[in-house]
Design a protein around this nucleic acid. Structure first.
Lengths: 347, 347
DNA sequence: TGGCTTGCTGTTACCGGTAACTCGCGCAAT
DNA sequence: ATTGCGCGAGTTACCGGTAACAGCAAGCCA
């Protein structure tokens, strides 16, 4: 049904190849012929078959993106930034969500590798389990890690120093006078582990004792933050200051607190991480650690395109670390004047 | 580099076709042969080339989704619902954002039609301009409209009755005692037009005069709601009650109000539409009109899959309209007791 | 005039699958 | 013994592009 190169060729009386060359702006063709072909192509509403093209050239001009959670606006911002680079470069995005699930992530990755030129992954994998990815990279898979990285993996990556994230958040709470500081510690992913490590380092630096029962397991989803805080509230005394592994979990925790009449910033000092879009507009504006989602996405996209175009030295993959800043709002109890929060550059 | 059917065939000493049949569970093959093939395929880590398959079968198992705004969590919820249906059916999603831009939407649609089996579109087009889509559908394009529909287009669609949305919101404000009700009226899209129409109908029904200067042009993005309200505040008196075309614009307007010391729910009664995720958690929880994003996405996905599988009667495309409810929170000034808001079924 | 570029176009084969048809063989029925 | 049938596997062609090479006329120089 759709028009093919052959149809156009027949119509004008030239070969398929000539038409192909005209369409692709190949210089080995006279400008009159090209003009004629393009005119007819337009008239017949020719649309190249992308699958055929991909099969012949082994390039699909598709980039796969795997994020852990579509409902986390943090990733929406990163994707938007990715798109701002890939789109002008002629790539389209195949976006998938792993829903913070390892098995699902692996499924997605394997499916996407077949149909894309490369992947941008925010991986849910624990930092130790790099085997599957190691293998894929050895087999020539082109991928870039973003936000959630695996240090031992020889693969370009864009992230923040998550140990530093944990330290900044915890130190801020210590500075506010708190001595018993709790932590909602996320899952087994590298981000969670690193932020937890930063939390411990901050305590150690100020000679505060690390208490195991001040740390609660919790996922990275808002719903998980909510559940974690609910059970914490039900089971024991909750500390007066808490660093939550990320903004969604902090927001979930905040909700659970409100349900029992506790208010963040007054009864419990709360700090998150990620600076998601609605953080400043919440009932209690969220104090958080911030970094540029735009730089994150744009850098990741550029790195991947370099990989795809073969313009990067694959011997030593580039790792980009983004600078952090502390954004002080009300949830930590240090009332900020400006609505948008006081920003303190760091690291 | 990657393993192909031919490699496996050579390895075992059978034909490509036999391998293909084994992989695709074709019954015309002995179970011993199949077992042997599958074993070798697994051992060699065979991954079928999707482009070749798509070229040969004219099926890509890709579904394109075009939404107006990735940062609007409303659409994140819809996409998630779409995925919950398409994924088990074996399709992957190619997600694009039109950024509320007509030209860009058309670009995306044309690009996606080439590589997908069908599209789910939340169209930014004004309801009158249906020509491009009409043509594509005539040419056999498979598409389903979601949320933003075009009534004159013969194409399956899932949406709400947006006139009703405008009426419910406006009537609620009237019920609260307001007589001069303003409206942030969105753009030229059908949703905006319909909600505006509902606003006017509600006024007419209560014999309230429609005042042109109580209606302000505004887009559907949060930033546009913010800008619209800012200039409104700068230029003239803002009415004591406002129906904003959707939640993001309402939230943007709320921010602009806060900047000049006005508080939604106290100084100005504000109602949005869409019930986005953070609506209940905002500094001033947002009163809104709600409908199921889950049903919306799931229905749209099912309709499209029916279209693709050829199981639907394409003569009369199905239109699904979702029921509405009013969710009363604080921004309208009617203080609700429960945090989650009072829900009133309607329509 | 012959040989050599140069510039444009055509030919052939191939990318990696699949549809549709063909073929050979064993076995039951005639 | 012949026929017919069904099963399992192979052959061939094609999906719609593109790479690589071949061909061919005009133009230039010796």
């Amino acid at each position: 049904m759709p028009v093919t190169l052959a149809d156009i060729a027949r119509e004008i009386g030239v070969s398929k190849m000539t038409v192909s060359r005209a369409i692709n702006n190949n210089p080995l063709i006279s400008s009159e012929t090209r003009a004629r072909v393009l005119e007819v192509a337009r008239r017949m509403n020719y649309q190249p078959n992308q699958h055929a093209r991909a099969l012949a050239t082994n390039r699909s001009y598709l980039i796969g993106v795997i994020v852990p959670d579509l409902m986390n606006l943090y990733f929406a911002e990163v994707m938007r930034a990715i798109e701002s680079i890939t789109r002008p470069a002629g790539f389209q995005l195949l976006i998938c969500s792993s829903d913070e699930d390892i098995t699902r992530e692996l499924d997605e990755v394997e499916a996407l590798l077949q149909r894309t030129d490369g992947l941008i992954i925010s991986s849910v994998f624990p930092p130790t389990e790099t085997k599957p990815y190691r293998k894929m990279i050895k087999d020539g898979a082109k991928m870039v890690l973003v936000d959630r990285t695996m240090k031992q993996l020889s693969c370009p990556a864009v992230a923040t120093d998550n140990v530093q994230v944990g330290r900044l958040a915890t130190e801020h709470l210590i500075r506010l006078g708190h001595r018993r500081i709790g932590h909602l510690r996320g899952d087994g992913s590298s981000v969670s582990a690193d932020r937890f490590e930063g939390y411990k380092q901050a305590l150690a630096k100020r000679k505060l004792r690390f208490e195991k029962n001040l740390v609660r397991e919790c996922g990275l989803l808002e719903s998980e933050g909510y559940e974690a805080m609910r059970s914490w509230l039900a089971e024991s005394e909750v500390p007066k200051a808490i660093f939550a592994v990320n903004d969604p979990s902090a927001i979930g925790a905040m909700q659970a607190m409100e349900e029992v009449g506790l208010r963040a910033g007054k009864d419990v000092a709360l700090v998150g991480a990620g600076n998601i879009h609605y953080g400043a507009m919440l009932r209690v504006p969220l104090t958080t650690i911030s970094w540029s989602r735009r730089d994150m996405g744009q850098n990741a996209a550029s790195l991947l395109i370099q990989l795809i175009e073969g313009k990067s030295d694959s011997a030593k993959p580039q790792h980009i670390t983004l600078p952090l800043e502390l954004v002080i709002r009300e949830s930590c109890g240090a009332r900020a004047k400006a609505t948008s929060g006081t920003r303190t550059a760091a690291s």
